[in-house]
């Protein structure tokens, strides 16, 4: 305890963290309110909303998986060139040359699949709890955008290893785009940078996957979490079967 006090009760520490470490309620509030990241929480939360069955922590799991994907993704970028055939060779390097390269790739891959599932189940949780009801209806719409961004992120990443699985998986998908009336072929051309899935497509998917879509998702998640707070904290399952259900709003 003395070491802790020495560490935290000096000018340097106090210039960064303005409150003490003693377990007083004032410090607990300050911990949350004075920290830009923790500040997304309110200082107090309803007891009921901490229970697992309120959220099954699915939003939190989605967010955690996204963080893991960002970290492992950045590390993968150190070994990856978005060009043909270097992209595929880089996969082989990860396998045979880079220490723990396979582990890194596995983490990124499985987290990506898990995130699609987690976001989908999060949406179902919100739906069956009727947690989208006013005033949360806009946050539901933000959520739908996040779901689409998640799918697009996963899909653009799918092409990057440039193996048979990637190439044909993306070919099948982008052929569906062609079926869109009027705009279909033009949109597909724009997406692929040509009429076939080739080097240009790889570069475009790379930029979308590593820059544009993650930025969009971060922005979207920021709005989403901000709105959770502004809409009065999570509803959890409180919208279900109350005496006054059907009378609100």
């Amino acid at each position: 305890m003395d070491v802790l006090r020495a560490l935290t009760e000096n000018r340097l520490w106090r210039s960064v963290v303005r409150h003490g470490v003693r377990g007083t309620n004032r410090n607990r509030v300050m911990l949350v309110m004075e920290n830009i990241f923790l500040h997304l929480h309110s200082a107090k939360v309803r007891r009921r909303s901490l229970e697992i069955s309120s959220t099954y922590y699915l939003g939190g799991i989605s967010l955690t998986l996204f963080a893991i994907l960002t970290i492992t993704g950045l590390m993968l970028m150190l070994y990856y060139h978005p060009s043909v055939p270097q992209a595929y060779d880089d996969m082989k390097e990860l396998q045979f040359v880079v220490s723990n390269g396979v582990f890194l790739r596995n983490m990124h891959r499985w987290a990506a699949h898990a995130m699609v599932l987690a976001v989908f189940f999060h949406m179902l949780r919100v739906f069956y709890h009727k947690a989208y009801r006013p005033p949360r209806e806009f946050n539901w719409v933000v959520g739908v955008v996040l779901l689409l961004l998640t799918l697009l992120l996963s899909y653009t990443g799918y092409l990057l290893p440039w193996d048979q699985l990637a190439f044909w998986g993306v070919s099948v998908g982008t052929n569906m785009v062609k079926a869109m009336p009027v705009l279909g072929p033009a949109f597909r051309f724009l997406l692929l940078g040509g009429n076939i899935v080739g080097e240009n497509a790889l570069l475009r998917f790379y930029v979308l996957h590593c820059v544009f879509l993650p930025l969009a998702l971060v922005l979207g998640v920021a709005v989403h979490l901000w709105r959770v707070r502004k809409d009065g904290g999570i509803a959890g399952s409180s919208g279900l079967r109350r005496a006054d259900a059907g009378k609100i709003p």
């Binding site: 607990r28 911990l31 929480h41 200082a43 107090k44 309803r46 609100i248």
Partner: peptide
């Protein structure tokens, strides 16, 4: 807004519980 109706439930500190 519905939060007016929910406001008076039992609460916990976000730090440390959440």
């Amino acid at each position: 807004p519905a939060r007016l109706l929910e406001g008076r439930e039992e609460v916990r500190m976000a730090a440390p519980h959440l």
